[in-house]
């Protein structure tokens, strides 16, 4: 479990980071590294340079304005979970971040790392999608719909750097997660956010293409925001992923149950 030869670089600015990236043959940005480094240790990835972006000032900090909560891409999970501003304005987000990985992982992992990776079982993508987030990169601004492009895929081009993510403040929101008993990633999880213009329901852990919006649930909840509104619904099995831990049928059931729990619990709840 040793990495292939690599060069560690720590730029102080976005421009410097980009220049270092462009000069590399197979470069990678390094943030928390809790996905990248295990892949590199297992020799399933090889990068000639690792560009550590955690100290770049533009990528730091949590700020609030009237409509949005903006979090710098290099902000660690523990800092988001503990920040009073997050806890006050979107308690479900703070709660959700407090369930990512474990204590040690939260002390290192970052929001940018998680969102740039877009693991189909990660928590953050569902919050970003349900909270109608705006993704700011060093080049452009993207909506969550534009940003997430399927399994492990985002709109980020090679060398494009995620700078910050702005979550639209909801009237209220809830997150419910059913964990994979082995990995502790979500087998299925739902982030439900009520905005002035409607309800957004984002599902992670379950879909073949990663995070997605469950539109039927959104309209049912838009009609009446209570868990019973979802009773007649069935999550679409066609799109559910299937593996040794849960088949599509079970995932569909969990999706519905998590969504109902996210409706009734205005924070974050872990169901297993």
């Amino acid at each position: 479990m040793y990495l292939y030869d690599t060069t560690y670089l720590r730029p102080g600015s976005i421009d410097e980071a980009k220049a270092l990236y462009d000069a590399g043959e197979s470069p990678a940005f390094l943030s928390g590294g809790h996905t990248l480094l295990p892949a590199m240790k297992g020799h399933l990835a090889r990068h000639d340079r690792l560009i550590d972006i955690r100290r770049i000032p533009e990528l730091q900090g949590i700020a609030e304005d009237e409509s949005y909560l903006t979090i710098g891409a290099a902000t660690r999970h523990c800092d988001v979970a503990a920040a009073p501003v997050v806890r006050n304005c979107i308690p479900a987000l703070a709660g959700m971040v407090g369930t990512i990985g474990d204590v040690q992982v939260r002390h290192v992992g970052t929001i940018g790392g998680s969102l740039a990776n877009n693991d189909p079982a990660a928590d953050y993508p569902s919050a970003a999608l349900a909270l109608d987030a705006i993704f700011r990169t060093d080049q452009r601004t993207l909506t969550a719909e534009e940003y997430f492009q399927g399994l492990y895929t985002t709109a980020l081009e090679p060398g494009e750097l995620l700078v910050s993510v702005s979550f639209r403040k909801p009237e209220h929101a809830g997150y419910a997660k059913f964990r994979n008993p082995a990995s502790r990633y979500a087998l299925a999880a739902a982030f439900v956010a009520v905005h002035a213009d409607g309800v957004r329901v984002a599902i992670t852990g379950a879909g073949n293409d990663g995070v997605y919006r469950w539109h039927e649930a959104e309209s049912a909840l838009g009609h009446k925001f209570e868990s019973e509104s979802l009773d007649p619904l069935r999550a679409d099995m066609e799109n559910m992923s299937s593996d040794m831990h849960a088949n599509a049928e079970y995932r569909a059931e969990l999706v519905k149950f998590c969504t109902q729990k996210a409706v009734t619990n205005q924070n974050c709840i872990t169901l297993l």
């Binding site: 008993p181 082995a182 990995s183 990633y185 040794m244 831990h245």
Partner: peptide, 10 residues
């Protein structure tokens, strides 16, 4: 197919 703690539940 359970070659790590990701798939071997403990």
């Amino acid at each position: 197919s359970a070659g790590s703690f990701m798939d071997y539940g403990m």
